[in-house]
Every structure is written in structure tokens, then in C-alpha cells.
Design a protein around this nucleic acid. Structure first.
Length: 501
RNA sequence: GGUCAAGUGGCCGAGAGGCAAGGUAGGGGUCUGCAAAACCCUGGACGGCGGUUCGAAUCCGCCCUUGACUUCCA
């Protein structure tokens, strides 16, 4: 089966055909670095990291662009227009760029904790003011925007009129009907500079107190909230590129506006495939600033939050996210995270054992049903990924394989039951999906050689005690190590393994 | 109000006309000096009412409940 994605634009699954294979261009809306990232933010970045990894694994040459929004957005709707970043900076008595730098570093640290690959380019909004101004100039020149008092607004109604006839009405992505919105909102429009409520800002005049401001043909100001993504995606990926990703909450208005702006400038729908991940919920409610129910990533990693009964590692969270399909909501709870933690541990330990195991020769005792089962489970995994990235189903197969692996490990199945070529296929594909595509990694790293030597010594002493039936000594060693967070396990084959809690 | 989703065991979640994945928790067993881990067995779920169909968790209608978007948001 060929690779298929659910395209929000067409509301159906479509075969993925890159515009210029083997090259693939992918743009994902990144964070606004005016504050700390929370669990909800982790989802798109992990989801699209897995997509990035999968495309690379399939042999595509991918340019993955994920922006950093470090120029403030303004707010409206009765509230005082303000630049989010400079306003928070005033409260915290920080320079805007100091704040941006702090949260950018924290964000990038969190991405590394998750083992997300770095995007190919991570452009900043403030680094592309010139490109944004150029784009606004083009839109003005084409008559799809107007200037009022030093601000520039996109004329949504005119765009809709002209482009509806070309089959691309405003609302094509989100399914909104502009006429309905115009009717229901016109009365509220009085004091606004905008001709229509549905118009959106391309450039905003900066009030005197704003710190973040740039020179433009329309005076000092700052870019509107949607233009940066259009400017940066077209600069680095071209006028038309393959994949545009982001959270479902960005579908309207953000992505709708991107489409309108880019289409006016470049005369083409910017992206072929629009992918949207669903939200992470807390007690059924979207995790978000406005709901005051966020758990920040640093809190999650440390366990330092009233709703958390313990700390959860970045890999546990990554695994938790991959256990569901990206287009469904995913509900947070301690119980669910603890389930994920245990499951990941079991998967990872079986995988580690598998990779260390050396099988040299088939013994002729091969269990054909088992071999066939393993081959089928392995083959299905790619099918599941191709079906709109069904990571949940891939994991289900990985767990069935885990049971087979552990059966061999514990001697419930003879080592020869798995044929050499099946075994090698298993090793190769487990590595491919667990590490290369899912990006999972071990967490008990950093054991240096000295520590291992010390532990091996203790294991030897304990083994000697056990063979003399001196269980007082052997249990003392095991218990005290356990208190230090080192867990000893007596394996079936007489060996002893350890792991850090 | 408008638009769009979703409701599956205790919990988290796949599935989208034909035996209801997987994880975790529960019960029983095997192994073990004891543990831990692992393996095996096992109970337990499709919001409600109608309809279409040989057959519905899946399609249609109505209802109930929850959520998202509605120009800040991953």
C-alpha cells in the first residue's frame, strides 16, 4: 500500500505524491516563544517529527521547516491591542529579546529531550521582517489589501469574490462560509479600522509603548500574525510545497489566512497536503492557556505540579502520544501516563535483549507458525504507517513481537524456534520502527565503565553468597542497591541484569 | 447562536458493514530460596431509541452527553 495522508483540505485520505520526488518540502507551525511549552505543544512536534523521520526512512530528501514565532502578535476584539511578547516582557522586566531567547532555548532543550530531530531550518519571524514586508507590498499592489492609519489589512471579502471563481473561496480549508460570518458579525464592526470583521491584519502600526517595532513603508510597526508563515514557507520551500502541518486549532483562522495571502502573492495554493493533529485534553478539555489547565513540560519532567502524582520522562510522553492516532484527541491522566511508562519499559527491555542476542545458526527446530507470525507482524507495520501514520497499530504489533521475544528470552520457546533470517529481519525492523521512525531511546544512559565494574563486583559477591545459600547477604545487596535506585534481576539463564530506576 | 467532531472494558486507546487490536490495572497459573521481571490462561466494553441490511460499534434518522472552532491558541 502506498503512503496515504488524511488531507484536511479535501477531507479524505489521499495518496502522497511529492511535487518533486525524491524531494519533499514540509512546513510545520512552531511555537510562540513568549512562554514555556506545555504538554499540548509536545503533540504536533512529536507527531511531525515521526512523519519527518518516516519520510527520511522511506528515502525522501526532506526539507523540514519549523518556525519560531518571536515577534509579538497583537490581540483585538475589545481588548487593548498589544504585542504579547513585549507586554509580558514589561511585566517581567525583561527585554523582549531576552525573553524570546530564554524560551527559545527552553523549547529547544525540550525538543532534544523528546529526541526530536532538528528541523532542516528553524527560521524566526524577527529574522524575516523584510520578506514579510515585501509580501505585504505585493498584496497591496494587487489590490487585496488596504492601509488605514499605518496598519495594513487583508481584504477577505474581495479575495473571496475573486478566488471563489477560481475554486478557492475563503474558508476552503476550514469549511467556513464567509457569507454567514459577514452577516452575523457586521453589526459589531463600528469602531474598527477594518472594513469587515473578517479582514485580518498584515501589518500593525506600533503604539508608542511598543518595544518591538520595525520600519516599513507604512510607518513603524510589526507584522500581523499570519504573514510570517507565508513568508518563510515560500522562501524556503517554494511557492508550492508538499506538506503543511500544525495543530487543529490553527486550521482557522491561521492556515486559512496563510492560504489567502500566499495565493494572492504566488498564484497557487501553497501546500498540497494539510495535516492537522488533534488536541491533548485534560479531563476532556483542551489543554490550553485560555483554559488555565496546562501542565508545562518542565513540570511534567519533574513531577512538580498539583495534578501529577509523579514525574514522567520525555520518552514516556513520546510513547504516550504515539499510542494514539494523531487525528484523535488524547486524554491526559496519571493512570494513562503510568500505563505508558510501564509499557515502554517492557518494550524497550525486550528490544535491548533482542539487539544484543546473537543467533548464529538455524537449528532445524524452527516453528513455522511462529516464523510466519513474526513475518506478518513485521510486514504490517509499514502498512499501518502508510495508512495515515497509524502509530497506535504499529505499537500493537511491536507488543505482539515483544511477547515472542520474551518467550525466547525466558526459554519458553527454544532459541532455534525462530529461524536465522526471521531473527535478522526482526532485529532490523524493530530497530527501524522503534529507533529510526518512532525516535524512542533508552533512558538509563550514562552508565560509565567504572560504575558498571562496581556493579559487576557486587553481583559477583551476591552470586557467591547465593551459591552458599547465604540469602541474608544476597538479599542485603539486592535491597540496598534497590534503595539507591539500582534494580537487580535474576535472569532465567543464571545471569543477573541491573537497571536504574 | 453558527459550523464541525467525538462517545468502545476500571483507565488510555485502535478498528469504520462479517471473531471488537494493543497497553495498563484486576483474577488464576508457571518459573524462582524469596523477590522482581517474564510467559501462559482469564473475566470485563461499542451513550440511548428507531431504521437499512442475511449481518451494524461501523451506514441513515432522532435524542442524550462531551468537546473543538467561531479571527490569541499546538
Amino acid at each position: 500500500m502506498s503512503l496515504k495522508f488524511y488531507n484536511s483540505l479535501t477531507r479524505q485520505k489521499e495518496v502522497f505524491t511529492p511535487i518533486h520526488a525524491p524531494y519533499v518540502g514540509m512546513y510545520v507551525c512552531g511555537p510562540t516563544v513568549s512562554g514555556e511549552s506545555h504538554l499540548g505543544h509536545a503533540r504536533p512536534f512529536i507527531t511531525f517529527d515521526v512523519l519527518f523521520r518516516y519520510l527520511l526512512n522511506l528515502g525522501y530528501q526532506v526539507r523540514y521547516v519549523r518556525n519560531i514565532t518571536d515577534a509579538g502578535h497583537f490581540e483585538e476584539e475589545g481588548r487593548v491591542a498589544e504585542d504579547k511578547i513585549s507586554s509580558k516582557a514589561t511585566l517581567e522586566k525583561l527585554e523582549p529579546m531576552e525573553l524570546v531567547h530564554k524560551y527559545t532555548r527552553l523549547y529547544q532543550w525540550a525538543m532534544a529531550q523528546f529526541n526530536n530531530l532538528s528541523p532542516s531550518i528553524e527560521p524566526t519571524a524577527t529574522g524575516h521582517i523584510v520578506e514579510q514586508i515585501e509580501m505585504i507590498k505585493t498584496i497591496l499592489a494587487d489590490g487585496f489589501a488596504y492601509e488605514v492609519n499605518g496598519s495594513v489589512y487583508f481584504d477577505v471579502e474581495k479575495y473571496h469574490e475573486v478566488f471563489s471563481q477560481k475554486g478557492q473561496p475563503y474558508g476552503i480549508l476550514s469549511g467556513r462560509i464567509l457569507e454567514d460570518q459577514l452577516e452575523s458579525t457586521r453589526a459589531l464592526d463600528n469602531q474598527d479600522e477594518k472594513r469587515n470583521k473578517s479582514d485580518f491584519a498584515l501589518w500593525k502600526k506600533a503604539p508608542p509603548e511598543h518595544i518591538m517595532r520595525w520600519q516599513s513603508p507604512w510607518g513603524e510597526g510589526f507584522p500581523g500574525w499570519h504573514i510570517e508563515c507565508s513568508a518563510m514557507s515560500s522562501k524556503y520551500l517554494g511557492k508550492e510545497f508538499d506538506i503543511h502541518g500544525g495543530g487543529m486549532d490553527l486550521q482557522f483562522p491561521h492556515h486559512e489566512c496563510e492560504i489567502a495571502q500566499s495565493t494572492v502573492c504566488n498564484h497557487v495554493m501553497p501546500a498540497r497536503y494539510w495535516l492537522h493533529n488533534n488536541m491533548i485534553t485534560l479531563n476532556g478539555k483542551k489543554m490550553g492557556k485560555s483554559y488555565n489547565n496546562v501542565i508545562r513540560l518542565t513540570e511534567l519532567f519533574s513531577g512538580n505540579h498539583p495534578l501529577l502524582t509523579q514525574a514522567y520522562s520525555p520518552q514516556t510522553i513520546r510513547f504516550f502520544i504515539l499510542q494514539s492516532h494523531y487525528r484523535g484527541t488524547l486524554d491526559f491522566s496519571n493512570e494513562a501516563l503510568q500505563a505508558a511508562e510501564k509499557a515502554l519499559k517492557r518494550l524497550w527491555e525486550a528490544y535491548q535483549w533482542l539487539m544484543k542476542k546473537e543467533l548464529t545458526e538455524s537449528t532445524g527446530l524452527a516453528d513455522e507458525n511462529l516464523n510466519q507470525s513474526i513475518r506478518t507482524l513485521v510486514a504490517e507495520m509499514e502498512e499501518f504507517m502508510n495508512d495515515d501514520l497509524n502509530t497506535a497499530k504499529v505499537l500493537a504489533n511491536l507488543f505482539e513481537l515483544t511477547s515472542h521475544i520474551n518467550s525466547v528470552k525466558d526459554g519458553h520457546l527454544p532459541a532455534g524456534a525462530i529461524r536465522l533470517e526471521t531473527f535478522q529481519l526482526l532485529q532490523q525492523q524493530m530497530k527501524r520502527f522503534i529507533e529510526d521512525i518512532f525516535g524512542l531511546q533508552g533512558e538509563n544512559t550514562a552508565t560509565d565503565g567504572k560504575l558498571d565494574g562496581v556493579l559487576q563486583l557486587l553481583i559477583e559477591i551476591r552470586k557467591a553468597a547465593k551459591s552458599k545459600k547465604d540469602f541474608v547477604t544476597s538479599d542485603k545487596i539486592r535491597q540496598e542497591l534497590a534503595q539507591l535506585g539500582v534494580l537487580l534481576k535474576d535472569e532465567k539463564d543464571g545471569g543477573v541484569s541491573y537497571q536504574f530506576e
